[in-house]
Amino acid sequence: MQDHETPGSPRPRVEWRFWLITLAAVLTMALTASLGRWQLARAAHKQALQAAIDERASRHPLSSAQLLTASSGADDSGPLLHRPVHLQGRWLAEHTLFLDNRQMYGRPGFFVLTPLRLGPPGAAVVLVQRGWVPRDFQERSRLPDIATPAGPVQLDGRLAGSPARLYEFAATTADPPGPSRIRQNLDVVAFAAETGLPLLPLTVVQTGSSEGGAGLARDWPAVDNGVSKHYGYAFQWFGLCALVAILYVWFQLIRRFARPRP
């Protein structure tokens, strides 16, 4: 029986390499396409969350009494987040805190937080993120002078959770010893236990112009769930999938079968 394959023929090795590359290309395209679809699903989920946030932000502002009623009867404050509020109360200026390393306009400074009592003595208290001030780099421990009215005040804002946490190397210490007014991060529950104040489990991001010449900037970033980021990731994964397909077709099909055989 005559063997048509010449000694040392590379055809078996070439066929084996072709099917191996085909398998790798199919698996890569399946993986990248799956990741692209997953990013689209994440974008749809984030878009639904953003729509819910926008719907809450468009509702009528809650008054102090309505906020107290809604927060006292609910175990979860999540449905209240991003709701606008119009509050009346008195500042507890002695408990004002300064969150360090917070940026606005590309400059580092402090977020100023002051508790607001929503009624007579003994009534519930909400922590208000009043605004941002730059820090003194010549004397880093120096606190800015913030004008805080002693009488009843009214303010507009939106409900939020605790301020965003930053990486903290070590706990901030005070001089003299005791709780420092300058802090890197703040936990509302821990602060309530520290001060003994009946704090609500959420905060208020104050909006509007600075009152009384306090000099607080309130150019807060818009609430964004990062929907566009997921669309960008999906485009990258689908683009990689298409690139693998194009390279496979060109090198393994067109150049393989279109070139003349000896």
Rank of each mutant, 00 (worst) to 15 (best):
215 G>F: 00
232 G>C: 04
55 E>F: 00
209 S>E: 13
24 A>V: 14
238 F>A: 02
80 L>T: 11
166 L>S: 07
181 R>F: 02
59 R>I: 00
180 S>D: 07
167 Y>N: 10
259 R>F: 11
173 T>H: 13
163 P>L: 07
24 A>Y: 04
86 H>F: 09
256 R>A: 11
6 T>E: 14
37 R>G: 05
75 D>G: 15
199 L>A: 03
117 R>H: 04
130 R>Y: 08
197 L>T: 03
216 L>V: 04
194 E>H: 10
135 R>T: 06
236 Q>F: 03
197 L>D: 02
231 Y>K: 01
164 A>N: 12
80 L>N: 11
242 A>G: 15
245 A>F: 07
157 G>V: 02
38 W>N: 01
181 R>L: 09
24 A>S: 12
67 L>W: 08
27 L>W: 06
189 V>E: 15
86 H>Y: 08
105 Y>S: 12
22 T>E: 01
191 F>R: 07
202 L>S: 07
74 A>Y: 06
74 A>W: 08
123 A>D: 15
190 A>N: 08
119 G>H: 04
116 L>D: 02
154 Q>P: 00
194 E>G: 07
182 I>E: 07
221 P>T: 03
127 L>Y: 08
90 R>K: 07
219 D>R: 05
135 R>Q: 13
121 P>T: 07
7 P>E: 10
94 E>R: 13
172 T>Y: 10
246 I>Y: 09
88 Q>N: 12
216 L>E: 00
